[in-house]
Amino acid sequence: MIRIAAVGDVHLDEEMSGQYRAQLGTLADDADVLLLAGDLTKHGTASEGRVVAEEFRDVGVPVIAVLGNHDYHSDEADKITELMRAEGITVLEGEGVTLDCPGGRLGVAGTKGFGGGFAGKAAPEFGEPELKEFVRHGRDLAARYATALTGLDADVRVGLTHYSPVKDTLAGEPPEIYLMLGSYLLAEALDDAGAALGIHGHAHAGVECGMTPGGVRVRNVALPVLRRTYGLYSLEVPGED
């Protein structure tokens, strides 16, 4: 088995420094890796990025993160990424990474992802340049994510995004804003890669459990949804007894 801890939307700022870290005492006993599903800061400032880097450094297991929309709010996402990487945290955007865990080889590909909507209700790349740009941003990120996922040389593939790949986990959010909460292209990437699990955040009013059309399990790990320090998921490795 490969054991995955995951959380998103911790929204840390200077006032919250140390509070989340204090809950991570049993993390290394529970899990092989910690995945962070974006919105790690409140306003996306470098100063908050420093809090995030301190909070998740040396927690006893490798930490793999994507950023969320909040982390881009102050145009300091590059600096936040740099601060996190300096503390040994892997930050993914359209890339993948593999880890040798005791249970097998885990591959994780990640992207912030974007809105755009879900099959049948998705925004088309048509009309005003502003709208086309919105749709294109989501398509570009999803395409790089798909390539990164299929390129993972691993026993088990896991996808990590901030935005949601499915509608299932948005239940509780107003349907009018689904377009802003995720994109079916992220689910298609999980299905095409035969992923074992898709992790996302962003939808604070949603629910934890969902599934892609191709049967890949999806978990919304936004902290207000989990109401626990992290979600903990163990995955069977193919060929394992």
Binding site: M1, R3, A5, Q23, T26, D30, A196, L197, R217, L223, P224, L226, R227, R228, T229, Y230, G231, L232, Y233, S234, L235, E236
Partner: peptide
């Protein structure tokens, strides 16, 4: 105010 804590339980996906 949200209260978060406690040791999480594992979900086994098989």
């Amino acid at each position: 105010i949200a209260h978060v804590g406690g040791r999480p339980e594992e979900e086994r996906l098989s």
